[in-house]
Amino acid sequence: MVKNSQKVKRTKLTKSVIRPYLYLIPLFTFLIVFTYYPIARMFYLSLFQWGIGSKKVFIGIENYITVSTTPLFWQVVRNNIVFSFGSVFISVSLALFLAVLANKNLKFKGFYQSLLFYPHIIPLAVGALIWIWLFNPRQGLFNHLLGAEVNWLNSFELALPSLMVVQIWANMGYYFLLFLAGLQNLPASLYEVAELDGANSWQKFRHLTFPLISSTTFFVILLAIIHSIQSVDLVYLMTEGGPANSSNLIIYYLYTEAFRWWHLDIASTISSILFIVLLLLTALYFILLERKVYYA
């Protein structure tokens, strides 16, 4: 009898010790096989000279030296900085401006929210198609409205700014919603005091809203930078990086190295660099998000 109950107890105990791990096995299987292992392999492969079917030769950091001495790599990085800076600055400041305006008891607030937000829920690739049609030199609406005959996507100067327009269009409404949510958490009492002191709207924005919402602003900017690095769909569909690489961005460059020229060693190296940059940015984003959650 005693023996039996001990046995039951023991199986119960082992069951409760093992159980949590059983629940985690599927998650970690896929996490390791389809995330961490491929990433580790990418870093490992970036240290070799290799290609499809050719033998791997260990060359240390030579691939990194090759990449960092390639002028095209730096041109692409520069393009990406211009693209990110331009699209982030315009979309975030416009979103903040509109959110401050809309943060009132407006009758049609929900309506505005939907109209500004809808581009974010349609596929970016489809957004790209729509804009190719709008930018069409002869039958496009854009030239018609401007009375111009500009070949937007084939122009050395205008290709990258044209992509920026699409990026801003696609994301501005999302940042607007994030700002609106942030603004709704600000204490109304402060504004009442400011109004009693006779502060005008600019002063209220400059000295109250802007400092109070700075944590939201930081994390929206960071999110926008991450979005702007990811916008490979636009480049692939709208310009293919051209003309003369004037609109080539980092992920598209990686794509051409890997899947057009099959320089898999160089591509692994670019991919490793990109991975680290994006990881740092997203880590910063989550740290800010965490702060916002706990201290706001």
Partner: peptide, 21 residues
């Protein structure tokens, strides 16, 4: 923590390794 780190890895930065796999 291992789960959370994956949250910070965006899909675009693992295109190549995932393709190879």
């Amino acid at each position: 923590m291992i789960v959370l780190v994956k949250l910070m890895i965006t899909a675009q930065s693992v295109l190549l390794p995932n393709y190879l796999l």
